[in-house]
Design a protein around this nucleic acid. Sequence first.
DNA 1: AGTGAGCTTTGCATGAATGCACAGATCCTG
DNA 2: CAGGATCTGTGCATTCATGCAAAGCTCACT
Lengths: 314, 314
Amino acid sequence: MNAQILPWDDLRIVLAIVRQESLAGAGRELGISHATVFRRLGALEARLGVWLFERQRTGYVPTLAGDDLATTAARVATDIDAVERRLVGQDARLSGTLRVTTTDTLLMGLLSDVFAGFQHEYPHIVLEVEVSNREYNLSHRDADIAIRPTKLPPETLVGRQVGQIAQAVYVHRHHLETSAWVGPDSHLGYPALERWMAHEGVEAKCRYRVDSMLGMLAGVRSGMGRGVLPCYLADREDSLMKVGESLAPLETPLWLLTHPDLRRTARVMAFFSYLSEVLSTRQACLKGEVSASKPTSPCDERQSSEHDGDGAES
Amino acid sequence: MNAQILPWDDLRIVLAIVRQESLAGAGRELGISHATVFRRLGALEARLGVWLFERQRTGYVPTLAGDDLATTAARVATDIDAVERRLVGQDARLSGTLRVTTTDTLLMGLLSDVFAGFQHEYPHIVLEVEVSNREYNLSHRDADIAIRPTKLPPETLVGRQVGQIAQAVYVHRHHLETSAWVGPDSHLGYPALERWMAHEGVEAKCRYRVDSMLGMLAGVRSGMGRGVLPCYLADREDSLMKVGESLAPLETPLWLLTHPDLRRTARVMAFFSYLSEVLSTRQACLKGEVSASKPTSPCDERQSSEHDGDGAES
DNA sequence: AGTGAGCTTTGCATGAATGCACAGATCCTG
DNA sequence: CAGGATCTGTGCATTCATGCAAAGCTCACT
């Protein structure tokens, strides 16, 4: 283009460096080589004749000029993310990329074959699955759809509840008598489980702490003690036995969520329909009412409710 | 970058097509090949799965989606132009590009050798001169500095008055008796001259009309009649003779103007200083008080005044 | 009706941008 | 103190975006 001093894409480079505080981190965020970030920043600073970052031992620290540029870039990013969502929301094709975020346990215990089925049904849609337990608002289109257990879906998102996740205490079949427990560490970030274990008075018997639910499964499978696990995950394991009934206090709704601007995107709608249909046949599995290895009984009446972000049915 | 659906630079492409209504026009505005514009738009529409333009015989017409995107792009352009100006305003180097806009007559009759002198003084600064009589606000950095005759500099710009441009009636030496006139046509857009000619009662004697002041000069030089010309332009022509004194009603201040964000840019400051100094030695030339071919007398006391956009001396 | 100007679209060659691999430096952990 | 992880910076090969040139179409003017 015109001997352009400030290519608009360079603003994304600067913003990413400010956010990540390093060239390497910015490269990861943008999906480009850190070498490219290095060169693009250097070329930009040369054209502007202004330093945007101080190079310190601890990383790249923005100057006042760098902050000024990053502030504009952040505002621009918000505007462009919004128009991109509106445009993608008009995409009527059943092709292209669909980014889905979910938890590691849901993926391993429930969704992997559902996704495979979706892929088979819609071969021209590319599913990109990001396993993450991080906060999500879907505004930056880092994901298009979130599948999450939550009692309070974010007000900014819309979607459907597609089931209730039951949890129960499980123990290894060869260690039925153990009184030891596997529990969550502080990193897991599961206050409801912590409260339940305190209420049951089993905190003191906790001999093994983990920072993920997959770690919890692995611990119980290894006979390290008994532990609370989602039924859809644990019932698949022949080596584990459920102790007692599902724990009502820990039952959590499972939500399928997207950004309001994307709800009319053809591939988002297709995904929602497919997942709702398939998951309606998995209600027993989610509720822990039947072994996952056994054929599921016919599904109940429609189970899902919808969430419009404002509480009103749409 | 990340398999990016909407590269930020693509917004500039879309905005330019909306503004110019053609790929060729957009390419010219952006300084890139129309083929590139064609490919970039096509690739963007393919990624979005949405038509941004209808291809009509009369050109590219934006769809609602295209308008939506262009609206965001215009807002983004405003933000990025502003931050670019602030950053360029901090550039302390006496190098890089400096874009200057001025009129054809000023360039031909006064400024060409002044610019050459500046270039010699500051060899690392690249002057890009755009000859234009168009409206200018310098917000988009299509020019950094404007040199213009005007009684009312735009409120949004800052600068200095560097002289008074005198105008007078000139006639070819071999046609001193002619009563015919060369005058402005409606395209020239010079209402003050039209009013003056009407007031003098010479409209009816107008036998040749032109749409530029260079055309006016050419006409008088060809003996087509007498005409009003800037003294700095006409006094250089040995073949022309001034008839009477300068015309006070048509005297116009000459301004050197820039955008407030750029006033501290080193090369802008250098340009202002250089031009002010050189033009102060050309006051007689501007006022039509001495032949341009004769050595100029020592300049008067400081003549220029400054304009801060808000009327206050800074 | 013919011609010229301007626009859109496409194939091919070129050069610039990018990624890869590597070297060197720094910091943190065992 | 040593080793591993991470980051910055650079040289080289590769990839891809771009410009150029050309073909074809449309419109306006003579």
